[in-house]
Design a protein around this nucleic acid. Structure first.
Length: 108
DNA sequence: ACACTGACCACTG
DNA sequence: CCAGTGGCCAGTG
């Protein structure tokens, strides 16, 4: 599928280092689709078909696991994050400000 | 072809 | 501080 926009999102998601997380808006901003954060999230909806795409490392700008409900199981996302060394409490990433990984900033 | 929806974000009141 | 609204792109009925 020539889903250029989708693949860009997947590539950025794959570039997220272990133990780090990014936000939909950050990816959208990096791709120049600043206001299309919704599309990023929606694009991740198809990420399930891509095992290399760590959708669990992508959360909303609040560090909240908004997309956890789209995983195989609602707890899958948190488990994956904790497996990466990311603390998650109440569906929210702890120290989000510290482990936040912005492609537009880190991935110059 | 039209309208609605979606794992969001930022602004305004 | 909380609530409401607009905007963005793509897919589906």
């Amino acid at each position: 599928m020539d889903t250029s926009f989708f693949e860009d999102v997947y590539e950025v998601a794959k570039l997220v280092p272990k133990g780090r997380v990014t936000s939909y808006g950050a990816i959208a901003n990096y791709l120049g689709l600043k206001s299309s954060a919704r599309m990023v999230g929606w694009a991740m909806n198809g990420a399930g078909a891509y095992p290399d795409v760590p959708a669990h490392r992508v959360v909303n700008r609040n560090g909240l696991l908004t997309g956890k409900h789209h995983f195989q199981t609602p707890t899958r996302m948190q488990e994956l994050l904790e497996a990466d060394g990311v603390k998650v409490v109440k569906d929210k990433v702890q120290d989000f400000n510290k482990i936040f990984w912005d492609p537009a900033t880190e991935l110059l």
